[in-house]
Computed example of a mutant assay.
Amino acid sequence: MDARDAVLGLWRTLSDRDWDGLAAYLTDDCIYVDMPVGPTAAARGPADIVKRLQVGLLDLAGYENHDGLLVAEGDAVLYEHSETWTFRSGEVVELPFVSVHRVRDGKVALWKDYWDFGTVVNAAPADWLEKLGSADTSWMFDATGLI
């Protein structure tokens, strides 16, 4: 699988919230970083990356990724896209993203998401931040110096 296909497959699978399928697109040592939070709160490896993504996405009533510009050069893939998050209480937010990926042997080995945390906070239910504060953080990995 080439780098472009690996990234598009990852995002289609994430849009379906197919957690088992998502893990298949990640290398065993893949690092995932939500850049607004920073490298000290990264996740490493498929199981922990899935746990990390579930913190934000599992309890949503709806989640959808919208394709956008994808630029691939060698093992690097930049993907400008957006996500629609629908909270169980009815709030909806469209969140613009730029994701940077490095692909190795047909799987994503590095995944960095750039987005505006304030966009979610301004649209989320009042208790959303409180719920984040009590989420499982067993996945947390300090990727400082590795990304």
Rank of each mutant, 00 (worst) to 15 (best):
V7T: 08
A41E: 08
L57I: 13
V108Q: 04
P96N: 09
T144R: 01
W115M: 00
L57Y: 05
D28K: 05
V37Y: 02
W85S: 05
G68C: 07
V108A: 12
F117E: 09
A6W: 12
Y63W: 08
S82W: 07
P125V: 11
V98C: 15
P125M: 13
K107P: 00
A135Q: 02
L14M: 07
F97N: 13
A24I: 08
G106Q: 11
A42F: 01
G21V: 12
A6R: 06
V50N: 03
S99E: 14
L78N: 11
Q54Y: 10
W11H: 13
L129K: 10
A76N: 15
L110T: 06
R44M: 08
T13G: 05
V120E: 09
G62M: 14
S138L: 01
F141S: 03
T27S: 12
G133H: 02
P96S: 12
A61N: 10
E94G: 09
Y25T: 04
S134I: 01
K131A: 14
K131I: 04
T137Q: 00
W85A: 08
F117Y: 13
S89N: 04
A123C: 04
R17M: 10
L8W: 11
K131Q: 10
R44C: 05
L14H: 03
P36T: 00
G45T: 01
P39T: 03
V37K: 01
W85R: 02
L69Y: 02
G45P: 00
D5P: 01
V37H: 04
V108D: 07
A47I: 07
H101N: 13
A143K: 12
A123I: 06
R44I: 05
R88S: 15
F97I: 05
D116G: 14
D18A: 10
G62S: 12
T137R: 00
L22P: 07
L78I: 13
A41N: 10
A76G: 11
R17C: 08
L146I: 07
P125K: 08
N122S: 14
L110C: 07
D18W: 05
R52Q: 14
Y114N: 01
K107R: 15
A109K: 03
E91V: 04
D113K: 00
L110M: 15
G21Y: 08
G56N: 11
V121N: 03
V77H: 05
L14P: 00
A135T: 02
L146G: 03
G56R: 04
A76F: 15
I49M: 13
R102D: 11
L26Q: 02
G106K: 07
T84Y: 08
R102L: 13
S89G: 09
D34A: 05
L22T: 08
V92M: 06
T86E: 14
E94S: 14
P96C: 09
R4Y: 10
D2M: 06
V92T: 14
K107T: 10
R17T: 06
G74P: 00
D136F: 14
L58D: 15
D127M: 06
H81V: 01
G38I: 00
K107Q: 15
E91C: 02
L14F: 15
Y63D: 12
D29L: 06
E73Y: 10
T84D: 15
L57W: 09
R4S: 12
P36F: 01
V92P: 13
D59T: 09
P39Y: 11
V71C: 06
